[in-house]
Amino acid sequence: MSLNTKIQGILGMAAIGDAMGAATENLSFEQIRTHFGQPVSEFKKPDKTAFALGNEAGQVTDDFSQIYFLSKAILENDGVIDKETVKKAILAWSNVPWYFDRFAGPTTRGAIKMYKDSKESEPAPLPGAVTVDYASKATNGSAMKIAPAGILNPNDLEGAIDAAIIVTQVTHDNSLAISGACAVSAAVSASLAPHATVDEALSAGFYGAIRGETKAKIVSREVAGPSVVERIKLAYSIADGHGTKEEKLRKLSQVVGSGLHISEAVPSAFGIIALNKENPLQAVIDAVNIGYDTDTIAAIVGSMVGAFVDLNNEKFASLYETVQKANDFDIVELANLLTNVVQESGGKGR
């Protein structure tokens, strides 16, 4: 597959996962199956159980909308990822009430408030290690929007990791959030290699989690909480264990977790992908049905495996068309622009 095809897949699958997961969010693994009668595999209009109540079927939430705004801002900056560009993107996103008022997570909301309240372009020096509220929360918002860092650094793990750190520090400046974001960014980067496999993307992602955690302890704040690296190992042990796939998915939801914390969402995504190496679209669907923060986990899974989806697959093509129309997004054009920037830079990020 071409680089453009792979980038389209990444963006498309992230958007599909977010929009489909919007209807199952906040329900448990069992509640999804009881509420809908079976696992969800199509876009549905969210009802009163979901934060996305008011969305139409196929509309995205904060997850893909932040990927979209971040990608646009990076393109306006000639493909260069720096903190000012990331800050510009997140502030522009926050000025859209449909997204910010309804979906902004606690860490992102705190960071945006700080930037809007501050007269300086950078936060004031911290009096203590973790006294700034936004910086100390290891939530999954760092990983949900990180795909552009990998896309702009195809087959360049160190570049993808460094770009992920830059993006993450604007809103989630701590060791765990950075580790999770670097894991996803590295997997995206590796997936863009000409003959990449899902196994190679997962291996790169695991390396990204380790490398991100190590680098973050130097450039950021170390915070307490479960290690993303160790929780990925736990997710793999479940995926490689005994039982049916459905039983393993249930165990992932119960043991690893699928909630707001980065050490649940990202490891859970790795476990889901490990169970679906031959079927990237099914990986996203399984993420939609894992329970709890389903839109975010499905967007993360979509980012990591999107390069492997067949754009001509009938089901994917239908979902892809619907999600673009429902949100008035031209993902094809966005992918074209990102591809051009990457190719102009010689296949490396800037």
Rank of each mutant, 00 (worst) to 15 (best):
G21T: 05
G21A: 10
G21S: 07
A22R: 09
A22P: 02
A22T: 14
A22Y: 04
E25A: 08
L27P: 01
L27G: 08
F29T: 07
F29M: 02
F29S: 00
P39H: 03
V40R: 00
S41V: 08
S41D: 14
D47W: 06
D47H: 08
D47L: 14
K48Q: 12
T49I: 13
T49L: 03
A50M: 00
F51A: 03
F51M: 11
A57T: 11
G58T: 12
G58F: 03
Q59S: 06
V60N: 04
T61A: 03
D63H: 03
F64I: 06
F64H: 13
Q66N: 11
Y68G: 04
Y68D: 09
Y68Q: 13
F69I: 02
F69M: 02
L70K: 03
L70M: 14
S71Y: 04
K72Y: 13
A73S: 13
L75D: 08
E76H: 10
E76G: 02
N77H: 10
G79T: 08
V80Q: 06
V80N: 12
D82S: 06
T85W: 07
T85I: 01
K87P: 00
A89G: 07
L91N: 11
A92I: 08
A92R: 12
W93M: 06
W98N: 12
W98D: 15
Y99E: 10
F100Q: 04
D101R: 07
D101T: 09
R102I: 14
F103I: 06
T108N: 13
R109I: 06
G110A: 15
G110K: 09
A111S: 13
D117M: 06
D117I: 05
S118F: 01
K119E: 15
P123A: 04
L126H: 06
P127K: 14
